[in-house]
């Protein structure tokens, strides 16, 4: 899960929403209205979710350029409006959440970003959740002093 080890962000994401608008030319899929997205054990809820993806030609071109296997179709997901991220161990709330699928990070921002783990609650303006290491960092102001740090449990994750 989020807090204790890497989360596989290549798993399919099930999304339930009132509406979905697909903009072919801009490669955008915009979910709106009670959006509820689940990937493995991670859940993301928001008023609106914008998925940026590559269409087939771009995916192939990008792969050839990188000389690697075609990258995933989805590059980035932006959640807006009452954003709530949760996993069995941890939750995060904010106004805007950006899920960098390839970079495996979720950045939450807002007037008040709240991160909780068990009984610990940390508030700030920005939180960065690293899905690969399970580390989450809360900053008072974007780029400001760190207010709190969640470290995966000693016996499971690597110690920092």
């Amino acid at each position: 899960q989020l807090g204790t080890g890497s989360h596989d962000s290549s798993q399919p994401i099930e999304v339930i929403s009132d509406e979905l608008e697909v903009q072919q030319a801009n490669n955008l899929a915009i979910f709106s209205g009670n959006v509820d997205a689940i990937q493995g054990e991670m859940r993301l809820r928001a008023d609106k979710l914008t998925v940026h993806y590559r269409n087939n030609d771009q995916a192939e071109a990008q792969a050839e350029a990188a000389g690697a296997e075609a990258g995933g179709a989805i590059t980035k997901i932006v959640a807006e409006g009452q954003v709530f991220v949760s996993s069995p161990k941890e939750t995060g709330q904010g106004d805007v959440g950006v899920y960098d699928v390839e970079g495996q990070t979720i950045v939450l921002e807002g007037k008040e970003v709240v991160l909780t783990q068990g009984d610990n609650v940390i508030r700030g303006a920005r939180a960065v959740m690293d899905l690969e290491t399970g580390r989450s960092v809360v900053q008072t102001k974007p780029g400001g002093r760190v207010r709190g740090l969640f470290i995966p449990n000693q016996n499971q994750g690597q110690t920092q």
């Binding site: 509406e19 995916a59 495996q104």
Partner: peptide, 29 residues
């Protein structure tokens, strides 16, 4: 979905009345 509104000759398509989507982030290169 339970409904659809397509615009600009299909360039923009809105699915409505409740939508269920499965996104495939795909393999990370």
């Amino acid at each position: 979905a339970h409904g659809l509104r397509g615009y600009d000759g299909g360039d923009r398509i809105r699915f409505i009345n409740g939508v269920h989507t499965t996104l495939y982030p795909g393999s990370r290169s």
